[in-house]
Simulated assay, not measured.
Amino acid sequence: MDLELRHLRAFAALCDERNYTRAAHRLHLAQPSLTRTIQQLERILDCRLIDRTPRRFELTAEGAEFLSHARRVLADLDAAVADMQLRSAVSVGFAWLLPDGWFAAARTRFESVGGHVEIHRVDDPIAALAAGTIDIALFRKEIRLPKNMAARTIGAERRVLAVAASSPLAGATGLRWQELACYPLVVNTVSGTIDETSWPQPDPGREIVTCTNFDEWLELVAAGRGIGGVPELARTRAPHPGVAYVDVADAPPSRIYLIWRTTPASSRSVQRFLEIA
């Protein structure tokens, strides 16, 4: 039998506790199993490590020497594992417009403890998460998630109206959200933040124009096919010569969610990023 890591951990725990019962409990082992592991270690090393007496726990000279080596090996290994875990990359997927302030702060804090964040622009972050191509999805749409995913709200963004620059609404002031319920609406069905149900009293005859990504949505609005709603950061992050962003005082806010897989269990680096974020 070759020397294994479990032999070193069992021996170190026993020397720390100086009692088989307490050491077995610490290692989540039955006491007979711990005893057999120590006996295996002595056979592998071909020497006696412990003087077994009914009243006290004593190491032999060989045992004391080997304990020093075992603790150094375990400490080096634990440090190497911790360092590699901290340096693990976490991939975050988003469909459009990362929230600048939040992401910069989360990335800085995560990378300050040795982690690394990769960002991926994908049309459908939930599908990418399900496929395992990203670890965490940043999403702005409230949806029913698969059973193996969980979500956390990390903030809310003020929403503005997006209209064609040539639209009479482009220069309007004092608009109210309900007043917009009858206008044709452009809806990004995959990752958009609003649809016809975003109005408490929707117009049943309203024209709905659909698309599946932000770029297409922006072009449809610019072409005058309908109005849209978008987080306010689009003003600076997604300017378009054919689109005007208009304030609507009572527009409902857009929530931001982090979504991750719960099955299989998230890695430690993903858990650490979620704690930081």
Results as ranks from 00 to 15, higher is better:
E58D: 07
A23Q: 07
D46T: 10
L34R: 05
Q31A: 09
L86S: 12
E65P: 00
D51A: 09
A95S: 15
L74I: 12
F66T: 00
R36T: 13
D100T: 12
R87S: 13
A24G: 05
T60A: 07
S68T: 10
F103M: 11
A23G: 07
A105I: 06
F94Q: 01
A13P: 00
L45M: 10
A104W: 05
N19Y: 06
A30F: 10
L67P: 07
R72D: 10
T37D: 03
F103S: 06
D100G: 10
F57S: 05
R9F: 09
S68H: 12
L77V: 02
A104C: 07
R52W: 10
T108G: 14
A64V: 02
T108W: 08
A89P: 04
R9Q: 12
F57A: 06
S68N: 12
L77G: 02
G101F: 05
L98W: 05
L49N: 00
I38C: 01
D46P: 04
L74A: 05
L41A: 10
F57W: 11
R52G: 06
G93S: 08
V92D: 02
L86D: 12
L77K: 06
P99Q: 04
T53R: 14
S91R: 15
Q31L: 01
A82P: 05
D100H: 13
L59W: 08
